[in-house]
Design a protein around this nucleic acid. Structure first.
Length: 421
RNA sequence: GUGACCGUAGCUCAAGGGUAGAGCACCGGACUGUGGAUCCGGUGGUUGGGGGUUCAAAUCCCCUCGGUCACCCCA
């Protein structure tokens, strides 16, 4: 006990007995992205610190308190990616993709934030994300939300609720902020210290603060949706209409405000009631000003990020990993050589094969085969070696048969339930 | 960053100042070459780490590391 080294705080090891769950969810996400025409993008785990300071936003919690930043040996300030969007937009601009119409990306990438760990919140977590850059219209907004909805269906995750709103554009945001300041001015002293600071810089954020006093203070506050401009309103109404038409369940919730500076117009999140305080499964929105902020031509964009660890928390631990096709058992010390050779031959024939490496008793090998949920056991002992055969036992039925050594793979593939893959 | 609770075998947990235990798991055996059941035996711990109090500390005190929950933040 008390090993010398432990995984750093807020990080975790994913062992083979659970990583198959991760792979299953990742595979489903890749498949849905393929159907929607989103191609995988892989960007560096670290970037120029300035990318996030300007992209994510100087005043955001992420930039001011949560980044893992370091100086490399060349004196450059680098930062472990605390969110995915700036990297993707940076790559989009760097490779001149703005001249190629709408570009759609997806990624599965580790994200790093220095936060106090708790259930559903880690210092390194994995985000499944999507970014669609270059399309200004409401249809792509609906598409991105539909994509996630289909993904949840694909992994059989039930009970998630989609909230959607609009926080306006750079033209109408000032008027919205003014309306909020006017409303909160007489109550300024009642607000929490953070919200008092937000009052000037970004009064919108007061709307989703969780402090009880603030929740009370904002009763009757102006709704973002009532103060956005006609263009933003039309865009939002069109998104909602599309979702309704597509049968994507959603709730309009004017209180959702994302914590990153670059969001414009459509914002959304998907929450799940089984998760407790960290209940956001997916969050995203439109970021029509980001490309410009990063020094590129004005280009609209929209995307989301979804925490893989949280998805797995909701999915729970039902089910079990698939077992090997064949467990090769050696009945004696002398049979271990032929058994090992058989295992390799079966593997080359495309079967997944497990075998004992430490000379355990035959009984224990059988137990192991059972525990692993092997479909069959191929047994080799004195009799088999003499006859050039293998005893093949079906672990579900208990039936055994003698099979010529060279025909085991063939026999397995022809069995019911065998796919030979 | 704030507050609360909790760290004993691989896992789940007993022992609350006086020789660290159980169940599960693992290994072997009963069963001379056969799994999922039962029984028997065995391996395994400087009680998260460090310091202090005491004749004596898993147990009391302090620090530290880690986990959990809430705040906060967010995926």
């Amino acid at each position: 006990m008390a090993p010398k080294y432990k995984a750093p705080r807020g990080t975790q090891d994913v062992l083979p007995e659970v990583s198959w769950r991760w792979q299953r969810v990742e595979a489903a996400f890749r498949e849905i992205c393929r159907r929607y025409g989103y191609g995988e993008i892989r960007t560096p785990v670290f970037e120029d610190t300035e990318l996030f300071v300007h992209g994510t936003g100087e005043g955001t919690e992420i930039v001011t308190r949560q980044m893992y930043s370091f100086e490399d040996r060349g004196g450059r300030s680098l930062t472990l990616r605390p969110e995915g969007t700036p990297s993707v937009v940076r790559a989009f601009l760097e490779h001149g993709l703005h001249s190629r119409g709408v570009q759609k990306f997806y990624y599965i990438a580790p994200i790093f934030r220095y936060e106090r760990p708790q259930a559903g919140r880690y210092r390194q977590h994995t985000q499944l994300g999507v970014e669609a850059i270059g399309a200004p219209g409401p249809d792509i907004d609906a598409e991105v939300i539909a994509l996630f909805h289909d993904f949840l269906t694909e992994i059989s995750l039930e009970g998630a609720v989609t909230h959607i709103s609009s926080i306006g554009c750079r033209n109408c945001r000032p008027a919205l902020s003014d309306a909020l300041r006017a409303f909160f001015k007489p109550k300024l002293d009642d607000l929490c210290e953070f919200c008092q600071a937000r009052y000037e810089a970004n009064p919108l954020r007061i709307l989703d603060c969780g402090v009880p006093a603030d929740v009370e203070a904002r009763v009757g506050a102006p709704s973002a949706l009532d103060h956005i401009c006609d263009e933003c309103r039309a865009h939002f109404d069109a998104v909602v209409a599309l979702l309704t038409e597509l049968d994507i369940p959603h709730e309009v919730d004017p209180t959702i405000v994302r914590g990153l500076d670059y969001y414009t117009r459509t914002t959304f999140e998907v929450v799940h009631p089984s998760l407790g305080a960290q209940d956001v499964l997916m969050g995203g929105g439109r970021y029509d000003g980001l490309a410009e902020v990063l020094g590129g031509p004005a280009t609209p964009g929209i995307g989301f990020g979804s925490g893989l660890e949280r998805l797995l928390l909701v999915l729970g631990e039902e089910g079990s990993s698939p077992g090997p096709d064949v467990y090769v058992a050696a009945a004696s010390e002398e049979a271990r050589g032929p058994a090992f050779k058989l295992a390799l031959e079966l593997r080359r024939a495309g079967l997944s094969v497990e075998i004992d490496y430490i000379g355990r008793a035959l009984r224990t090998q059988m137990r192991e085969a059972n525990r692993l949920r092997a479909r069959a056991v191929a047994l080799i002992g004195e009799d088999e070696m003499a006859a050039g055969t293998v005893t093949l036992r079906d672990m579900a039925t208990g039936e055994q048969e003698s099979v010529p050594a060279g025909q085991v793979a063939e026999r397995m593939k022809s069995r019911p339930g065998g796919d030979g893959a």
